[in-house]
């Protein structure tokens, strides 16, 4: 039977369902066994999701030492001969996967957004040229199918059959140390996660002069503020709320695109959005063609008017 290996990064155990969904799409209707490898991570949260969890507990294996981790993963591949290897495209995953691919002589496709088949050949689709183009990649050679996917791009199944998981703890793993030490880590105040919001009030270059107006509007709609790169690059808000190829992929029910042009590298990150309302001085901006409602005009003035109207109605309702 085919075997799929999912690399589970320490503290990113929550990504397991979406990475499993990727393996599902790769193997299609063929039966396959699922393996997770987790290094010094939370095994308990993975039990029930995988056929086998390979749990490596070793203090010398540091999460930032990709040379050592790659040796471990390649060693496991030599033993189990996986048919696919899936890694989350986090900062660490993007350094780990290329090393593993080089070690096991396997092609690697980064940031896959879609998986399809053409004449029985697997096609892994990924953005290129900053998201302006999509490239469908086929694998050549004998190695496993290896890919990275960004968190939030694939979706895990809602309800899952509980599996009888076998946990194995391999001993005597061989690895080199990469000569990297973490000296200090200052976590940033974690802001909200735009990937979890039902409503996103998102601003682009067209609202730069009145960006602070988005917050009260988001509040009124029970949503969160997001932004395009144009706003983030101006330093008006943290990069953690950027929607787009170089930011996050989002799936809110409502996306309010205020003064956002909607170049392909932005809209590529709008995944299964139920409704889009765009406000733009240019009715031919690409975002408008995707929108349910297009408001032609200045987004700052529009937001001011809309907020005023909402407040009026709230006051009337309270009286």
């Amino acid at each position: 039977m085919n075997r799929a290996l999912i690399f589970i990064e320490q503290n990113n155990e929550r990504l397991a369902p979406e990475l499993l969904a990727v393996a599902d799409q790769i193997h299609g209707p063929q039966p396959f066994e699922t393996y997770a490898v987790v290094i010094n991570g939370d095994v308990g949260s993975l039990v029930g999701q995988f056929d086998t969890v390979i749990s490596v507990e070793d203090e010398a294996l540091q999460a930032h030492d990709q040379m050592a981790l790659a040796d471990v993963v390649a060693g496991l591949h030599a033993e189990h001969q996986f048919d696919s290897i899936v890694v989350a495209a986090t900062a660490a995953g993007k350094m780990l996967a290329p090393r593993v691919a080089m070690k096991i002589n396997c092609g690697l496709v980064a940031d896959v957004t879609e998986i399809s088949r053409q004449n029985d050949k697997l096609r892994l689709v990924r953005p290129a040229y900053g998201g302006r183009m999509m490239a469908a990649i086929e694998m050549q050679g004998d190695g496993p199918v290896m890919l990275t996917v960004r968190p939030g791009v694939f979706r895990g199944p809602g309800e899952q059959h509980h599996k009888a998981t076998q946990v194995i703890e391999p001993k005597g793993l061989r690895y080199r140390l990469g000569g990297i030490r973490q000296i200090k880590r200052e976590s940033k105040q974690l802001s909200y996660d735009i990937r979890e919001a039902d409503v996103l009030v998102s601003g682009g270059g067209g609202v730069a002069r009145g960006f602070e107006l988005l917050e009260p509007l988001a509040k009124a709609l029970g949503g969160k503020v997001a932004a395009s790169r144009a706003i983030v690059d101006r330093g008006l808000i943290s990069r953690s709320v950027q929607v787009g190829q170089s930011g996050k992929t989002v799936s809110p029910r409502l996306y309010l695109a205020l003064g956002i042009h909607g170049a392909i590298q932005h809209v590529v990150a709008l995944d299964e959005v139920e409704y889009i309302i765009s406000v733009n001085t240019n009715p031919d901006a690409p975002i408008c063609s995707l929108s349910d409602i297009v408001v032609e005009g200045d987004a700052v003035i529009f937001v001011e008017k809309l907020l005023e109207k909402i407040r009026e109605e709230q006051i009337n309702a309270n009286n």
Partner: peptide, 29 residues
């Protein structure tokens, strides 16, 4: 190479039924 670009394309987005309004009182309504 172990990977090959089988096809490169720009993504086209379909637009559904659409409402177009101006940024005036009517648009806000």
């Amino acid at each position: 190479s172990l990977t090959k670009v089988a096809k490169a394309y720009t993504r086209k987005y379909e637009s559904g039924a659409q409402l177009r309004v101006a940024a005036d009182d009517n648009g806000v309504e």
